[in-house]
């Protein structure tokens, strides 16, 4: 593991900042070619030199990134840039794809999650995932939320399970809307409600990190606003990494933003800085809408 601390943060030449953007000088690409500081003071997850291959094709090239406690990290970039692939490495969902191979090191609280001795089942309970399309099970709302606690044996009694379901739905901001119809099927809810149900289902197993893969791309603006609000509330208890195609969304919900391009992590930094003052030309081009 590279010993990267906040002290080694890259100093950006004043001239570069003054110019607003520039082809970046070599010294500012000190770490894996990424502009900006990939580290945080208080990391929950650390990824170092991650390469991902689909068959022979390199999908992610040498990406290193920290995800800090109680922060929301947004990953943006054009389609096919590898941001979702990187996200799926963080809870080993890529294991379900036969031809996918991951190199490098990803740690959750100092535990290497690709260590051969590590069981993927508890990992995925610790690092939950919310998917692009709301995917509630065709079961009742109650059973959807209770699914995780049941398979992990988190509760010993029905009332305990009831409490977890209620608490998760409360946290997901869905309780008031569904408390009278917990036995109705989850697929009967509206799209936004379904996505919040999926979030409730994820937090019911008390994860430390929640990964969100374009959680609002299938939702209308009102439902999106509701989910974004929720993300902000969840930040107090969880670490969140979110992949999004909407730069406004990244700007609204995240504290740090990482810009991916063609499988490489081009630039990472505080969200405000990235959007007001991108340092890499590709980032600038992307957020000003010149491509992507």
């Amino acid at each position: 593991m590279l010993s990267v601390t906040p002290d080694t943060a890259i100093a950006v030449p004043a001239s570069v900042i003054a110019a607003g953007f520039s082809p970046v000088a070599d010294e500012s690409r000190a770490i894996n070619g990424t502009v900006g500081d990939i580290t945080v003071a208080d990391p929950r997850m650390t990824a170092r030199n991650v390469n991902v291959y689909y068959g022979d094709k390199l999908a992610i090239n040498n990406v290193s990134l920290d995800i800090g406690k109680n922060e929301v990290v947004a990953m943006i970039g054009p389609s096919g840039c590898g941001k979702s692939t990187f996200l799926r490495c963080l809870n080993r969902m890529n294991d379900t794809i036969d031809i996918c191979r991951v190199e490098g090191e990803i740690r959750l609280d100092e535990q290497d999650i690709y260590d051969s001795s590590l069981d993927v089942v508890p990992l995925r309970a610790q690092v939950g995932m919310v998917f692009q399309k709301p995917n509630p099970f065709p079961k009742s709302i109650y059973d959807n939320v209770a699914y995780g606690p049941r398979i992990h044996g988190l509760t010993s009694s029905k009332s305990e399970l009831d409490d977890i379901v209620e608490e998760s739905l409360l946290k997901a901001g869905l309780w008031d809307e569904v408390k009278d119809r917990l036995d109705e099927t989850g697929t009967g809810l509206s799209g936004g409600q379904q996505q919040r149900l999926c979030i409730a289902r994820t937090i019911a197993v008390a994860p430390e990190v929640i990964l969100m893969d374009e959680p609002c791309s299938a939702l209308d603006p009102i439902a999106t606003a509701r989910v974004e609000e929720l993300i902000d509330e969840l930040r107090e208890q969880y670490t969140i990494a979110i992949v999004t195609h909407s730069m406004q969304q990244a700007a609204r919900v995240s504290q740090r933003t990482a810009y991916f391009h063609l499988g490489e992590l081009v630039e990472v930094g505080k969200t405000d800085d990235i959007f007001t003052n991108p340092r890499h030309r590709l980032t600038e081009d992307y957020i000003t809408g010149r491509f992507g």
């Binding site: 809870n91 969902m93 379900t96 993927v120 089942v121 508890p122 990992l123 995925r124 309970a125 939950g128 995932m129 998917f131 399309k133 995917n135 509630p136 099970f137 065709p138 079961k139 699914y147 995780g148 398979i151 992990h152 999926c198 289902r201 994820t202 197993v205």
Partner: peptide, 27 residues
Amino acid sequence: VPQTMRDASLGIGATRSETVKNVILPA
């Protein structure tokens, strides 16, 4: 049965057999 159902179940930390038993077969 949509792949998203499997992803949802595996993403919570269900094993394959739990996914088959609890999600895929009922669906």
